[in-house]
Amino acid sequence: MLKIQDLHVSYGAVRAIKGISLEVNDGELVSLIGANGAGKTTTLHAISGLVPAESGEIILDGTDLRRTPPEKIIGLGMAHVPEGRHVFARMSVEENLLMGAYIVRDKSKVKERLELVYGHFPRLAERSRQLAGTLSGGEQQMLAMGRALMTDPKMVLMDEPSMGLSPILVKEIFSIIKSLHADGITILLVEQNAKMALSVSDRAYVLETGLISMSGKASELLHDDKVRRAYLGA
C-alpha cells in the first residue's frame, strides 16, 4: 500500500533522513521504532507532505505523494494522527470530529462515521460538547484518533500515540490500535515505547539517526539482543 524508496529529508543544513526505504502492505501494522531524534516523526511528516522530501519516492497505492498537495493526501485514504495530538483546543469534541470529515461531502455519511467513532470511543460521546483543550491527555489522544477515522481511511499514520500517558492509558490506546488493525486498517505506527509497539505489530523498522539499522518481523525483533539492549531496557 505504502512504499518509500531512498527518502532524504533535511532541515536546512541538518540531514534528518539519509535515505530510508520501507514498505507497508495492505492490512499490515508496521512500527517504526527508535530513539528520540532518530527521524521517526520526520518520516511521517514527509509522507504527509508537512515537510518537503529532498529526494526519493513516496508512493501510496500508485500515487506519488511527493507530487500531491499535502491537503489532498487525506482524500487518497490516508489519515495522520500527529505527535502531541494537535486537536483543535478551542473547538468542541464534536467539532473536532466534524473537521476530521472535512473532505466528506455527504452529510449522512458524516453522521454515520460520527456514530461509529462514538461507538469506538464512548468517552468522546460523553464529552461531545466539551472544548477539546480541556480534555485529559488520554482523551485528547482518543479524539485525535477518532478524528483521523472520520474519513474511513484505508491507512493511518500514528505518531507516538502513547506519549505522556499513564501505563493504564497506554494499554487502552494500544488495545484500540489492535482493534483498528483487526478491522483491516493498515497502520504505520511510530513509537518510543518499543516494547508495546513490537508486541502489537506485524513487522517493524528500527531507525537510527536517519537510517534504518534493522528490520524484520516484530516478534523476532522483540527477542533480538541488540534491540533488547538498545530499546527495551533489558
Binding site: L50, E71, Y102
Partner: peptide, 23 residues
C-alpha cells in the same frame, strides 16, 4: 464549513492540512 476551516487554520495549520483544508 469554511468558517470552521478558518478557525482550524488559525489554531493549528499543520493539523488543518491533515484534515484536508487548503491553507
Amino acid at each position: 464549513k469554511i468558517g470552521r476551516a478558518m478557525r482550524c487554520v488559525s489554531e493549528d495549520k499543520g493539523a488543518a492540512i491533515l484534515m484536508g483544508i487548503s491553507v
